[in-house]
Simulated scan of single mutants.
Amino acid sequence: MKTSALLLVIVIIARVGCAQSSEKRIAYLSKDRKEVFGAGDAAFSRTIEEAGDGFILREYYQPSGKLRVIAECIEYEPEIVYHGTVKHYYENGILRREGRYEEGYATGVFVEYYETGTICQRKEYQSDDKELILQHYTPDGKEELTQGNGIISTTDGETVCNLEIKNYLLLNSYCIKGGDTVYTDVEKPAEFPGGMTAMMKFLQTHVKYPADARRNGIQGSVLTGFDIDKNGKISNLSTVRGVSDDLNDESLRVISAMPHWLPARVGGKAVKSRFVLPIKFRLATSNRRR
């Protein structure tokens, strides 16, 4: 009996050990999603595990080690391509957001929760790229939309943001801080002169892949935010999500060199708006499983 019990314990431990070893840490990340060296400077850690034809990606809060994200994906470098269920958690263990993706695209109904566990909102992503806001609730449970119509208002310090919803669709959104109104979603967005084709040509001509980043295999998409005033002038540039200092700086340099844009419009009038532009730096490698 003693021998059998000992053998059983050894087998169980061995199996647990094998399961743990399949989850491999691939990165430590700072709060602004930059990769850092070592747990001491990290806000999150990221692991990857092979699963079927894809991967299970997990992120953990540091230093607590509590689960932050668990996601099914088909690629994780140079960028994550979600495919399957994705769940985000608050550090207190409460579910923050859940939904499904198909090859990187959100699909179906997503549910978001407050840190208390009460529901915040439900959204539906449709195949034609429509994002429907089905329901939205205040922290105390009051529904803010009536049959898909209404205004969602949030406050963050001195900034008040308002989202105007009509027929379940976001019509306009704007933030007010210190009397200055900046629109983030508008009826007619700001546009690079000549449209998307002209902007892509401008980027292809002016973006230079930093030599150090290329040499060290650093790649990814830099998200840069900037304001476009009523006259189309660019100002207030910032890195929304960076990759590395040299890639971030190159993105800021190129955008600051752009000509004036055509300003956004609301109700036929030019308005100041906020724009976020991704600039992708990619080398010829991939970790997609075939």
Rank of each mutant, 00 (worst) to 15 (best):
G150L: 04
T239G: 06
T107D: 02
R68K: 14
V266F: 06
T107Q: 08
M1C: 00
R68V: 04
G99Y: 00
C175P: 10
G93R: 10
L67H: 06
T205L: 05
S221L: 05
T118L: 05
T181F: 08
M1K: 08
V254Y: 06
R122S: 12
G220I: 00
K24S: 07
T138L: 09
E144Q: 15
N172M: 02
P78E: 01
W261K: 05
T3L: 10
E98R: 09
D53V: 00
T285F: 13
K280M: 00
T116K: 14
Y89W: 14
R25T: 12
L134V: 09
Q135S: 08
F281V: 13
P278C: 09
S4W: 06
H136E: 10
A51V: 08
T116H: 07
T184P: 00
E143M: 11
N236G: 06
R97W: 12
E59W: 07
V16H: 09
G225V: 01
H260C: 03
L163C: 09
N162T: 09
R241K: 14
S4T: 14
D41A: 15
C161K: 13
N167I: 06
A71K: 05
D53P: 04
A190S: 15
H260S: 13
Y28E: 11
V243C: 11
N167E: 15
E72H: 03
L283E: 11
T47L: 01
K269I: 07
F192C: 04
A211S: 05
P63H: 00
K130H: 01
G242S: 01
